[in-house]
Write a protein that binds this DNA or RNA. Structure first.
Lengths: 145, 145
DNA sequence: TAACTTTAAATCGTTTACAATTTAATTGCA
DNA sequence: TGCAATTAAATTGTAAACGATTTAAAGTTA
């Protein structure tokens, strides 16, 4: 690559990742609107559908989000009746997050989203998996916060 | 993939892209802090360093950002003395964005960022280019807004 | 055990991000 | 020409996102 091309927008890996991220999240909207939730709510539920209850801090780590982001998100989800937040008995500093019945029930309605989204990306399952694995390897190798 | 695995967080392509995007942008911070700008300012400058002046709408399209996002961003960059905004003579609805001398001068200081960032991703130039091209192809195939 | 350190979550301030609406200029066409 | 439709950017409202700080609980140690 020519030296003067390094600063070209279309040569930036970061911009490609950043734009893809936003555009894919935009495609989720019609599906998530039906459930009345946002993308951030959705990935929070994905974690909880696998692990319930879960400590606040562990949830944040899974999602790569900090307490400044997650505290208001979880409070709004609590208000919608999707989950409950409670202090842990053995350590009053920690918060435990649990799904409500409503939060658990949403899983069924969400079950068809991943395949419909795959469809919308126009990728074959193999292409999608390969790309996802490449990104996971990149993420693992990035310098930590 | 087992049916019940579709909703697992780590199987989601979108979450991988979204997380990589945020983590890579985080790595830009020390470099951009030195220039006193944000990542959004940076990508805006990347466009302007290639095309100056540029109509507001064209800039938005390049960056995949809408007027609701870009109007305040450009106003704040104008306030910092990086660019100017002016109505177009032949069509008073349109805004033309031009770099100031200061905005042009920042390019020199930014010149080393891309290679330093490549370094921080721990990817070879070939790996980075391949991944970037894959994402561009995906972006192009996604259903438009 | 009292003071210091560490840890966890909440809070605060700033910046993005986008959908939806508004305002104003231009274009199309009857 | 005059009015409806379109277009461009700004505005409004809401929801992230994160750095930095604060508050409070728990752990450490002198």
């Amino acid at each position: 690559m020519n030296n003067k091309d390094y600063l070209k927008l279309d040569n930036q890996l970061c911009f490609a990742v950043y734009t893809c991220s936003k555009e894919i999240i935009r495609l989720y909207r019609p599906f998530l609107d039906k459930l009345g939730i946002t993308y951030t709510h959705y990935i929070t539920l994905l974690v909880l559908w696998e692990t319930d209850p879960i400590p606040f801090k562990k949830l944040c780590n899974h999602l790569y989000l900090d307490s400044g982001t997650m505290t208001p998100v979880l409070k709004s989800m609590e208000k919608k009746g999707l989950l409950t937040r409670s202090r842990m008995e053995n350590d009053e500093r920690q918060i435990s997050i649990s799904l409500t019945q409503l939060g658990r029930e949403l899983k069924e309605q969400a079950a068809t989203i991943p395949l419909q989204m795959l469809c919308r990306t126009q990728l074959s399952p193999e292409e999608a998996n390969t790309l996802r694995d490449t990104l996971h390897r990149l993420l693992k190798r990035l310098p930590q916060a």
